[in-house]
């Protein structure tokens, strides 16, 4: 934890008064730890701004990491006293909250600037519909795939085979031709030619 606590974040957000700001800057000149923390905070802020700008560029979705963004925004919502000041933040890993301490008095709507850029909608409300939309898309694609697959499988069954009677006389002649015998119909199909003889030895 830095020596200046929340004043560091206030400095980064440009919310300090003139005198207070000078004092903090003077401290930063002599304290490497606080200076590092300010650098890290500025970097984080820059990244957050970058993330919240992305939906402006690509309104219809295609966000690289919706899930990540949503989580970030919901973190901001927890910190927002206007939303749920009477309620304690839900239990979770302490590291999450210590990284972004709740400061009810200083900046009541600080977590929303990105959302405002979209046209005044609350931050989490702006992004949350993207996930169901994506979910519907996946669900729709899966249903279509399974439906087409099932239809193909059902339609791919063998057609009702026609009823056939083997042409035994033709088969007998063809067999005899390949087997080297006289190509005549088998006695099975021509009973008049049967010549029974005595059983062999």
């Amino acid at each position: 934890m830095s020596c200046l606590g929340e004043r560091l974040t206030a400095l980064v957000d440009g919310e300090l008064g003139h005198e207070e700001r000078d004092r903090v800057l003077a401290h930063l000149a002599g304290c490497a730890q606080c200076k590092d923390e300010v650098t890290a905070l500025r970097l984080l802020k820059g990244r957050l701004r970058g993330l919240s700008d992305a939906p402006l560029a690509d309104e219809t979705g295609g966000l690289p990491s919706d899930d990540f963004l949503t989580r970030l925004r919901s973190l901001a919502a927890y910190a927002d006293p206007a939303d749920d000041s009477p309620h304690a933040p839900p239990p979770g890993p302490p590291a999450r909250h210590s990284a972004r301490p709740v400061r009810p008095s200083a900046r009541p709507v600080r977590a929303r600037p990105a959302a405002r850029a979209h046209g005044g909608r609350p931050g989490h409300a702006a992004v949350l519909p993207a996930q169901p939309r994506r979910r519907y898309l996946v669900l729709g694609a899966a249903t279509l795939f399974i439906g087409l697959g099932t239809a193909s499988y059902a339609a791919g069954g063998r057609q009702e085979a026609p009823s056939v009677t083997p042409a035994f006389d033709r088969f007998a002649v063809e067999h005899a031709l390949t087997a080297g015998d006289a190509p005549l119909t088998d006695p099975l199909t021509d009973p008049s030619s049967r010549v029974p003889v005595a059983p062999g030895p």
Binding site: L148, G149, S152, G156
Partner: peptide
Amino acid sequence: RLSRGARRL
């Protein structure tokens, strides 16, 4: 069977 069905469809 699946591909035959797909062809038919």
